[in-house]
Design a protein around this nucleic acid. Structure first.
Lengths: 346, 346
DNA sequence: TTGTAGGCGTTATCAG
DNA sequence: CTGATAACGCCTACAA
């Protein structure tokens, strides 16, 4: 028996020597595929146990040409909505014996491309991505061309050849806005994450516009914000909210934005929901803990992560790209104000 | 020139053929180590560009025996404090050209061990971990024995041979409690994450106890909660908060717990800070957005992630394990109540 | 300065 | 049922 090497340095060769069999046999026992004599298997397993051996996935992957690792790209883990989807991905991946390689883009297209390239250099089995704009992305074009399997999360491209797990953002944006209108608000504005950084934001605004049109209302204002710097827009927001035709209802394209706006308004002594009603979007957990609680569209982020992963596995087996539309739900909350009868989500 | 294969299937052999050189030359150009004729390098680079080639890290890693991937284990990404540390890790990793493999334990020791084993099977270059109990962990013992480099985050073991990046949890717990006392609270209780699931929680409670002793006060109650199920403890908490000697000050071992307790109290019509003052721990971003804003100990989570990664790199170069103690800060907030003069963090 | 060849740890093929 | 062996993609002596 060789000297016991470090855990991370053991190879099946060590195990083979310890068990007195060939490396091929060790491999077979480890993978349980081929027919093996029970005693041989026992010997090998004992050796594995004794040595504390764990197969090197690198060798396995190189041999197989593909890995059971999924590459995940999110805009930012600091938005709980994305963190939650990653939790769902992790759950599904764990169930399937897969690992998760993660990267963040910071909502920046250049970093997005760079990060995807890095993930690909690991020869991951597939990708789960939330990108800035799923309809025009050079990197997604490349992935398509080279048939690298991926599934988008949150993104909801117009084209139907890209696999996604998402909700209907336009419909949800419409529902959120309808809730404001149903609550009695007539002068509505939207605070949105930059459209170039988030196609969802744009789609939610489309829903906002549709609901306004339905009710024959005009948009009072549209404030596009960077996702990271809200404070800088304080003056602009104050201006809008104290202007001549100031809105009484605000639709925010994400909950995080909504919470920041609410804090801003509090500082400015604008009462929520007294003077302004607010609806968010995402359904992050902390929204329910606020006072007033945040009315919002709840996305099933965790489930979205799980479903996206499962669809990725399906695609690896040759399934065609699907656009998985998950149900969302409007969650009423004190921030809405007015005398709302909350509409039900689809 | 061969048929253009899928991006992910290209090898340096393809590039070599395309450029009319040997694979060794391609490798050398890619790594920029050896002396190369400028024109040769140009040819190779052109071929790389033309083909859209990106080196397969699996092959590289197998050959090198080690990878530029860091394995990260957190209790849960759904607590923003951990998500934030991962953001810091990602930043530092990206700067260094490393990738991030991530797993969550759900605060469960068994899953913790399993996850670390999985990360190790990838032969990661090192590990960044937040474990349940850094002082007694069979897995950490194993890592030490086999000299697998790792750095702990948030964990603050008593022993000084384990590398960490953390804050002084006892001192911070003491400061948080002192703040409650300084605010005029005399009947103090603590709501803590289960000690078996979080050594930090235990240490923060030690700080709590020390501050009480200093002020010659008795602990009114200690409520240990599972990190995921707070609602279930509603009755217990209500009982404590309405008991004969009910506390007027509450120290919560995490911000997330504090926010949940605040919501619970709101439902129970117990005024915060009117009837109960609250201090949290972590400094998650949303705490500042609440009304009242959450008084808390702010940990430099992002920086902690960055520093932990950097120390891991240092350890890989042979540096001895360090216990990096980062500064924390007490952030006053409306939840504190009383007439506090907030103490400064160290 | 460049090419040839061996081997990293694993699995699959092919004999026995 | 088991063993020897040839790859997988890459890097690095060693040769030329």
């Amino acid at each position: 028996m060789r000297n016991r090497a470090a855990y991370s340095k053991l190879t099946i060769r060590d195990v083979a020597a310890e068990a007195g069999v060939s490396i091929a046999t060790v491999s077979r026992v480890l993978n349980g595929r081929a027919p093996i004599a029970p005693e041989t298997a026992a010997k090998v397993r004992a050796a594995v146990e004794r040595l504390g051996f764990r197969a090197n996935r690198t060798g396995r992957e190189l041999r197989a040409g593909i890995s059971r690792t999924v590459g995940v790209l999110v805009p930012s883990l600091d938005n709980p909505v994305f963190a939650e989807s990653v939790t769902g991905i992790q759950e599904a991946a764990r169930d399937a014996g897969w690992s998760v390689l993660i990267a963040s883009s910071g909502y920046d297209v250049e970093r997005e491309n760079e990060a995807i390239g890095n993930l690909l250099s690991h020869r991951v089995g597939g990708l789960l991505l939330t990108v800035a704009d799923a309809d025009r992305s050079a990197t997604l074009d490349t992935l398509d061309r080279e048939q690298t399997p991926y599934v988008l999360l949150y993104n909801q491209p117009d084209r139907d050849d890209r696999a996604t797990a998402t909700i209907d953002n336009v419909a949800a944006g419409r529902d959120a806005t309808r809730a404001l209108i149903a609550a009695g608000h007539r002068r509505l504005a939207m605070v949105a994450g930059r459209f170039v950084a988030s196609d969802r934001s744009k789609q939610r605004h489309r829903g906002f516009s549709e609901a306004l049109a339905e009710a024959r209302l005009e948009q009072v204002a549209l404030i596009e914000l960077d996702f990271d710097a809200v404070a800088a827009f304080d003056p602009m927001i104050r201006a809008v909210l104290t202007g001549p035709n100031r809105p009484t209802g605000l639709f925010c394209s994400t909950d995080l934005l909504a919470l920041r706006i609410m804090a801003l308004l509090r500082e400015a002594h604008v009462a929520v929901p007294g003077e302004v009603g607010i609806v968010g979007f995402d359904g992050i957990a902390v929204g329910r803990l606020m006072a007033p609680s945040l009315a919002t569209i709840v996305q099933p982020s965790r489930e979205m992560g799980r479903r996206a992963f499962q669809h990725l596995l399906a695609r690896l087996e040759g399934a065609a790209p699907e656009q998985i539309l998950l149900p969302y739900e409007f969650r009423p909350g004190g921030s809405l104000g007015g005398t709302a009868n909350a509409p039900q989500g689809e």
